[in-house]
Amino acid sequence: MRILLISFILSSAGIVFGQDLPTLVPVDPFDPNGDAARLFDAIDGWGTDEDKIVSVLCYRVASQRDAITTTYNSQHGSLADDLKSDLSGSFQTLAIMLTHSMVKFLSIELYETMARSGTDETSLTEIVMSRSNAELAEVRSFYVDFYGHSLVSDIESDTCCAYQQLIIQMAEGQRDESNVVNMTLVQEDVVALYEAGPAIEETDEVVYVNIFSLRNFVHLNEVAILYEATYETSLTTVVTTEFTGKEIANALVSILQYSRDKARYFSERFHASIAGVGTADRDLMRLTVSRCETDLGKIKSAYQTVYGESLSNAVSKDTSGSYRTALLALIG
Protein backbone atom coordinates (compact mmCIF):
# COMPACT_ATOMS: atom_id res chain seq x y z
CA MET A 1 0.00 0.00 0.00
CA ARG A 2 2.79 2.41 0.93
CA ILE A 3 4.52 1.88 -2.41
CA LEU A 4 1.36 2.31 -4.43
CA LEU A 5 0.33 5.44 -2.51
CA ILE A 6 3.74 7.08 -2.83
CA SER A 7 3.91 6.15 -6.48
CA PHE A 8 0.58 7.86 -7.12
CA ILE A 9 1.39 11.01 -5.16
CA LEU A 10 4.91 11.48 -6.46
CA SER A 11 4.27 10.61 -10.08
CA SER A 12 1.31 12.97 -10.24
CA ALA A 13 2.69 15.96 -8.36
CA GLY A 14 6.35 15.45 -7.55
CA ILE A 15 7.88 16.38 -4.21
CA VAL A 16 10.26 19.09 -3.12
CA PHE A 17 13.68 18.25 -1.67
CA GLY A 18 13.42 20.40 1.44
CA GLN A 19 12.82 24.12 1.89
CA ASP A 20 15.69 26.56 2.23
CA LEU A 21 16.17 28.87 5.21
CA PRO A 22 19.08 31.30 4.75
CA THR A 23 20.80 33.23 7.52
CA LEU A 24 22.08 35.90 5.11
CA VAL A 25 19.77 37.75 2.72
CA PRO A 26 20.38 40.65 0.30
CA VAL A 27 20.53 44.07 1.93
CA ASP A 28 18.04 46.56 0.52
CA PRO A 29 18.71 49.32 -0.37
CA PHE A 30 22.15 48.32 -1.59
CA ASP A 31 24.89 50.89 -2.24
CA PRO A 32 28.09 49.31 -3.63
CA ASN A 33 29.82 52.70 -3.85
CA GLY A 34 29.10 53.45 -0.21
CA ASP A 35 30.20 49.97 0.87
CA ALA A 36 33.41 50.21 -1.16
CA ALA A 37 34.15 53.58 0.45
CA ARG A 38 33.46 52.12 3.89
CA LEU A 39 35.92 49.29 3.25
CA PHE A 40 38.56 51.71 1.99
CA ASP A 41 38.11 53.82 5.10
CA ALA A 42 38.54 50.69 7.26
CA ILE A 43 41.77 49.73 5.51
CA ASP A 44 43.39 53.05 4.56
CA GLY A 45 45.96 54.71 6.78
CA TRP A 46 47.40 53.54 10.08
CA GLY A 47 45.55 50.67 11.71
CA THR A 48 42.68 48.58 10.38
CA ASP A 49 39.07 48.75 11.51
CA GLU A 50 38.22 45.04 11.42
CA ASP A 51 34.72 45.58 12.80
CA LYS A 52 33.95 47.86 9.87
CA ILE A 53 35.19 45.20 7.43
CA VAL A 54 32.89 42.66 9.09
CA SER A 55 29.97 45.10 8.94
CA VAL A 56 30.22 45.14 5.15
CA LEU A 57 31.53 41.76 3.99
CA CYS A 58 29.52 39.64 6.44
CA TYR A 59 26.18 41.37 5.87
CA ARG A 60 26.05 41.28 2.07
CA VAL A 61 25.27 38.24 -0.09
CA ALA A 62 27.83 36.98 -2.60
CA SER A 63 26.42 38.85 -5.59
CA GLN A 64 26.47 42.10 -3.61
CA ARG A 65 29.99 41.45 -2.32
CA ASP A 66 31.08 40.82 -5.90
CA ALA A 67 29.66 44.21 -6.93
CA ILE A 68 31.41 45.88 -3.97
CA THR A 69 34.70 44.23 -4.93
CA THR A 70 34.37 45.36 -8.54
CA THR A 71 33.63 48.92 -7.40
CA TYR A 72 36.51 48.94 -4.91
CA ASN A 73 38.95 47.56 -7.47
CA SER A 74 38.03 50.23 -9.99
CA GLN A 75 38.42 53.04 -7.45
CA HIS A 76 41.17 51.98 -5.04
CA GLY A 77 43.08 49.02 -6.48
CA SER A 78 42.71 45.38 -5.44
CA LEU A 79 40.48 44.78 -2.42
CA ALA A 80 41.86 41.26 -1.99
CA ASP A 81 45.44 42.57 -2.01
CA ASP A 82 44.60 45.30 0.50
CA LEU A 83 42.94 42.80 2.83
CA LYS A 84 45.92 40.49 2.48
CA SER A 85 48.27 43.33 3.46
CA ASP A 86 46.23 44.56 6.42
CA LEU A 87 44.87 41.34 7.93
CA SER A 88 46.35 38.06 9.09
CA GLY A 89 45.44 34.52 10.05
CA SER A 90 42.04 32.95 9.57
CA PHE A 91 40.26 36.30 9.46
CA GLN A 92 42.42 37.30 6.50
CA THR A 93 41.57 34.06 4.68
CA LEU A 94 37.85 34.45 5.35
CA ALA A 95 37.76 38.13 4.37
CA ILE A 96 39.49 37.44 1.05
CA MET A 97 37.15 34.49 0.50
CA LEU A 98 34.23 36.90 0.89
CA THR A 99 35.48 39.08 -1.97
CA HIS A 100 34.94 36.28 -4.49
CA SER A 101 31.86 35.68 -6.58
CA MET A 102 30.15 32.40 -5.69
CA VAL A 103 31.44 30.64 -8.81
CA LYS A 104 35.01 31.78 -8.09
CA PHE A 105 34.66 30.78 -4.45
CA LEU A 106 33.45 27.28 -5.36
CA SER A 107 36.14 26.86 -8.01
CA ILE A 108 38.90 27.81 -5.58
CA GLU A 109 37.50 25.52 -2.91
CA LEU A 110 37.41 22.60 -5.34
CA TYR A 111 40.97 23.33 -6.40
CA GLU A 112 42.09 23.49 -2.76
CA THR A 113 40.64 20.05 -1.99
CA MET A 114 43.02 18.61 -4.57
CA ALA A 115 45.99 21.00 -4.14
CA ARG A 116 46.65 20.04 -0.54
CA SER A 117 49.06 17.30 0.44
CA GLY A 118 46.75 14.38 -0.18
CA THR A 119 43.34 14.91 -1.73
CA ASP A 120 40.55 15.87 0.68
CA GLU A 121 37.96 13.48 -0.73
CA THR A 122 35.37 14.24 1.94
CA SER A 123 35.30 17.94 1.06
CA LEU A 124 35.50 17.23 -2.67
CA THR A 125 32.45 14.98 -2.39
CA GLU A 126 30.59 17.54 -0.27
CA ILE A 127 31.07 20.39 -2.75
CA VAL A 128 30.32 18.47 -5.94
CA MET A 129 27.37 16.58 -4.46
CA SER A 130 25.64 19.66 -3.07
CA ARG A 131 25.74 21.98 -6.09
CA SER A 132 23.11 22.11 -8.82
CA ASN A 133 23.78 21.13 -12.43
CA ALA A 134 23.66 24.81 -13.42
CA GLU A 135 26.15 25.79 -10.71
CA LEU A 136 28.49 22.98 -11.73
CA ALA A 137 28.35 24.12 -15.37
CA GLU A 138 29.36 27.64 -14.29
CA VAL A 139 32.16 26.23 -12.14
CA ARG A 140 33.53 24.06 -14.94
CA SER A 141 33.63 27.06 -17.28
CA PHE A 142 35.22 29.40 -14.72
CA TYR A 143 37.67 26.76 -13.50
CA VAL A 144 39.27 26.19 -16.89
CA ASP A 145 39.57 29.94 -17.52
CA PHE A 146 41.02 30.61 -14.05
CA TYR A 147 43.42 27.67 -13.75
CA GLY A 148 44.16 26.89 -17.39
CA HIS A 149 42.99 23.29 -17.12
CA SER A 150 39.66 21.63 -16.52
CA LEU A 151 38.08 20.55 -13.27
CA VAL A 152 37.59 17.06 -14.67
CA SER A 153 41.28 16.78 -15.61
CA ASP A 154 42.26 17.70 -12.05
CA ILE A 155 39.84 15.12 -10.66
CA GLU A 156 41.33 12.52 -13.01
CA SER A 157 44.84 13.39 -11.79
CA ASP A 158 43.99 13.29 -8.08
CA THR A 159 41.53 10.39 -7.78
CA CYS A 160 41.16 6.89 -9.10
CA CYS A 161 38.92 3.90 -9.64
CA ALA A 162 35.21 3.95 -8.78
CA TYR A 163 35.53 7.10 -6.68
CA GLN A 164 36.96 8.95 -9.67
CA GLN A 165 34.08 7.80 -11.87
CA LEU A 166 31.52 8.87 -9.27
CA ILE A 167 32.98 12.36 -8.74
CA ILE A 168 33.43 13.01 -12.46
CA GLN A 169 29.85 12.03 -13.25
CA MET A 170 28.57 14.29 -10.47
CA ALA A 171 30.90 17.14 -11.52
CA GLU A 172 29.63 16.89 -15.10
CA GLY A 173 26.18 17.79 -13.79
CA GLN A 174 24.12 14.90 -15.13
CA ARG A 175 21.95 14.29 -12.07
CA ASP A 176 18.17 14.29 -12.46
CA GLU A 177 16.91 17.35 -10.56
CA SER A 178 13.18 16.80 -10.98
CA ASN A 179 12.72 15.39 -7.45
CA VAL A 180 9.90 13.31 -8.90
CA VAL A 181 9.94 9.69 -7.76
CA ASN A 182 8.77 6.86 -9.98
CA MET A 183 8.31 3.90 -7.64
CA THR A 184 8.67 1.43 -10.50
CA LEU A 185 12.16 2.80 -11.15
CA VAL A 186 12.85 2.77 -7.40
CA GLN A 187 12.02 -0.93 -7.30
CA GLU A 188 14.21 -1.58 -10.34
CA ASP A 189 17.13 0.25 -8.73
CA VAL A 190 16.73 -1.69 -5.48
CA VAL A 191 16.95 -4.98 -7.37
CA ALA A 192 19.83 -3.71 -9.52
CA LEU A 193 21.85 -2.69 -6.45
CA TYR A 194 21.26 -6.05 -4.81
CA GLU A 195 22.18 -7.99 -7.93
CA ALA A 196 25.28 -5.81 -8.46
CA GLY A 197 26.42 -6.25 -4.86
CA PRO A 198 25.41 -8.84 -2.27
CA ALA A 199 24.06 -11.26 -4.88
CA ILE A 200 27.41 -11.68 -6.66
CA GLU A 201 30.98 -12.36 -5.63
CA GLU A 202 32.56 -9.23 -7.14
CA THR A 203 30.67 -5.93 -6.87
CA ASP A 204 29.60 -4.30 -10.13
CA GLU A 205 30.75 -0.79 -9.17
CA VAL A 206 29.40 0.83 -12.34
CA VAL A 207 25.81 0.11 -11.31
CA TYR A 208 26.32 1.84 -7.96
CA VAL A 209 28.17 4.78 -9.52
CA ASN A 210 25.43 5.36 -12.10
CA ILE A 211 22.52 5.17 -9.67
CA PHE A 212 24.18 7.30 -6.99
CA SER A 213 25.41 9.99 -9.41
CA LEU A 214 22.42 10.25 -11.75
CA ARG A 215 19.24 9.75 -9.69
CA ASN A 216 17.64 12.65 -7.85
CA PHE A 217 18.09 12.74 -4.09
CA VAL A 218 14.46 12.10 -3.18
CA HIS A 219 14.53 9.02 -5.40
CA LEU A 220 17.73 7.82 -3.71
CA ASN A 221 16.16 8.14 -0.29
CA GLU A 222 13.21 6.02 -1.43
CA VAL A 223 15.67 3.47 -2.81
CA ALA A 224 17.39 3.29 0.58
CA ILE A 225 14.08 2.86 2.41
CA LEU A 226 12.78 0.16 0.08
CA TYR A 227 16.13 -1.65 -0.02
CA GLU A 228 16.17 -2.06 3.76
CA ALA A 229 12.51 -3.10 3.81
CA THR A 230 13.15 -5.70 1.10
CA TYR A 231 16.50 -7.17 2.15
CA GLU A 232 16.54 -6.33 5.89
CA THR A 233 19.92 -4.63 5.52
CA SER A 234 20.55 -0.91 5.24
CA LEU A 235 22.03 0.38 2.01
CA THR A 236 24.67 2.14 4.11
CA THR A 237 25.79 -1.23 5.46
CA VAL A 238 25.82 -2.67 1.95
CA VAL A 239 28.08 0.00 0.46
CA THR A 240 30.52 -0.08 3.38
CA THR A 241 30.69 -3.86 3.05
CA GLU A 242 30.82 -4.13 -0.73
CA PHE A 243 33.38 -1.40 -1.42
CA THR A 244 36.89 -1.95 -0.12
CA GLY A 245 38.06 1.52 -1.17
CA LYS A 246 37.55 3.99 1.69
CA GLU A 247 37.01 6.95 -0.65
CA ILE A 248 34.18 5.42 -2.69
CA ALA A 249 32.48 3.87 0.35
CA ASN A 250 32.57 7.18 2.25
CA ALA A 251 31.28 9.08 -0.78
CA LEU A 252 28.34 6.72 -1.28
CA VAL A 253 27.49 6.95 2.43
CA SER A 254 27.64 10.76 2.20
CA ILE A 255 25.21 10.73 -0.72
CA LEU A 256 22.81 8.53 1.27
CA GLN A 257 23.08 10.85 4.29
CA TYR A 258 22.51 13.92 2.12
CA SER A 259 19.52 12.26 0.45
CA ARG A 260 17.96 11.34 3.78
CA ASP A 261 18.44 14.68 5.58
CA LYS A 262 20.48 17.45 3.98
CA ALA A 263 20.42 19.68 7.07
CA ARG A 264 21.64 16.90 9.34
CA TYR A 265 24.38 15.97 6.86
CA PHE A 266 25.73 19.52 6.95
CA SER A 267 25.33 19.78 10.72
CA GLU A 268 27.61 16.75 11.00
CA ARG A 269 30.09 18.35 8.59
CA PHE A 270 30.12 21.49 10.75
CA HIS A 271 30.66 19.39 13.86
CA ALA A 272 33.55 17.52 12.24
CA SER A 273 35.25 20.85 11.47
CA ILE A 274 35.30 21.93 15.12
CA ALA A 275 35.27 18.67 17.10
CA GLY A 276 38.37 17.37 18.82
CA VAL A 277 41.75 19.07 19.03
CA GLY A 278 42.17 22.01 16.67
CA THR A 279 39.79 23.45 14.09
CA ALA A 280 39.52 22.57 10.41
CA ASP A 281 39.24 26.26 9.58
CA ARG A 282 39.05 25.92 5.81
CA ASP A 283 36.14 23.51 6.13
CA LEU A 284 34.42 25.72 8.69
CA MET A 285 34.75 28.78 6.46
CA ARG A 286 33.60 26.97 3.34
CA LEU A 287 30.58 25.45 5.05
CA THR A 288 29.55 28.80 6.50
CA VAL A 289 30.02 30.84 3.32
CA SER A 290 28.49 28.23 1.01
CA ARG A 291 25.37 27.55 3.11
CA CYS A 292 24.50 30.93 4.69
CA GLU A 293 22.55 32.08 1.62
CA THR A 294 20.60 28.85 1.24
CA ASP A 295 19.87 26.58 4.19
CA LEU A 296 22.09 27.45 7.15
CA GLY A 297 18.99 28.23 9.21
CA LYS A 298 17.86 24.61 8.88
CA ILE A 299 21.38 23.36 9.51
CA LYS A 300 21.49 25.34 12.76
CA SER A 301 18.26 23.69 13.91
CA ALA A 302 19.61 20.25 13.02
CA TYR A 303 22.86 20.99 14.86
CA GLN A 304 20.96 21.97 18.00
CA THR A 305 18.90 18.77 17.81
CA VAL A 306 21.84 16.44 17.20
CA TYR A 307 24.47 17.97 19.50
CA GLY A 308 22.42 19.70 22.18
CA GLU A 309 23.98 23.14 21.72
CA SER A 310 23.70 25.91 19.19
CA LEU A 311 26.03 26.02 16.22
CA SER A 312 26.89 29.61 17.15
CA ASN A 313 27.98 28.55 20.62
CA ALA A 314 30.04 25.65 19.28
CA VAL A 315 31.81 27.88 16.75
CA SER A 316 32.33 30.61 19.35
CA LYS A 317 34.16 28.19 21.64
CA ASP A 318 36.53 27.12 18.85
CA THR A 319 37.39 30.53 17.35
CA SER A 320 38.43 33.99 18.50
CA GLY A 321 38.77 37.66 17.58
CA SER A 322 37.47 39.12 14.34
CA TYR A 323 37.46 35.66 12.79
CA ARG A 324 34.87 34.57 15.36
CA THR A 325 32.89 37.80 14.91
CA ALA A 326 32.77 37.31 11.14
CA LEU A 327 31.67 33.68 11.31
CA LEU A 328 28.96 34.42 13.87
CA ALA A 329 27.64 37.26 11.71
CA LEU A 330 27.28 34.88 8.76
CA ILE A 331 25.77 32.12 10.91
CA GLY A 332 23.20 34.59 12.23
Rank of each mutant, 00 (worst) to 15 (best):
L151V: 00
V103Q: 13
V190P: 01
E121Q: 03
E242L: 11
T23H: 05
Y265H: 15
L284I: 08
A80C: 04
V253T: 14
F40S: 14
Y231C: 07
V61P: 01
Y147H: 11
V218F: 08
A37K: 15
T113M: 06
R2D: 15
F91I: 04
E268P: 03
I331D: 02
V25C: 10
R291N: 03
S74Y: 06
L124V: 01
L287F: 11
S150Q: 05
A314V: 08
E188L: 14
S254Q: 14
V218Q: 09
E126P: 00
K298S: 07
F217V: 00
S12I: 10
K246Y: 13
F91N: 04
G89P: 11
I108G: 07
Y208Q: 04
I53P: 09
I200P: 06
A37F: 10
L110T: 13
Q64W: 01
T237S: 15
Y163M: 00
F243M: 07
F146K: 14
E242M: 12
F266P: 07
T159W: 00
S213Q: 10
Y227G: 07
V56W: 02
S7R: 15
V128Q: 02
M129W: 03
K52Q: 14
A162N: 08
G89L: 07
K84A: 13
E247I: 01
S130C: 12
L83D: 00
D86Q: 12
V103C: 09
I167L: 10
Q19Y: 15
L311G: 08
E247C: 05
L287S: 06
I68F: 04
Y231M: 09
T99Y: 06
D281K: 13
N221V: 01
G297M: 04
I168P: 00
L24A: 10
E135L: 05
S267V: 01
G18N: 01
P22D: 04
E156W: 03
T241S: 14
E242T: 09
M285K: 13
L226R: 04
R264D: 12
L94C: 11
P198T: 09
E242R: 15
H149Y: 14
C161P: 02
E50A: 02
R116T: 14
A134M: 06
S132C: 05
M102A: 15
F243Y: 06
E138K: 15
A275N: 13
S312R: 14
A314K: 12
P22I: 03
S290Y: 07
T71P: 03
K262I: 04
D176L: 05
L166Q: 08
L220Y: 03
I43A: 00
G77I: 09
S123F: 01
S55V: 01
T240S: 11
V238R: 10
T240Y: 04
S157T: 11
R38N: 11
E202N: 14
T233L: 12
N73R: 08
E268R: 14
I155Q: 01
A36F: 07
E205V: 06
N210W: 04
D41M: 12
G45W: 05
Y59L: 11
H76E: 07
F243H: 07
Q19A: 12
N33D: 11
F8A: 13
S150V: 09
G47E: 04
T237W: 02
S157D: 14
R65F: 00
Y111H: 15
L328N: 09
V128M: 03
F146I: 00
I155E: 01
T279D: 10
L4H: 11
G118D: 00
S320P: 04
D158C: 11
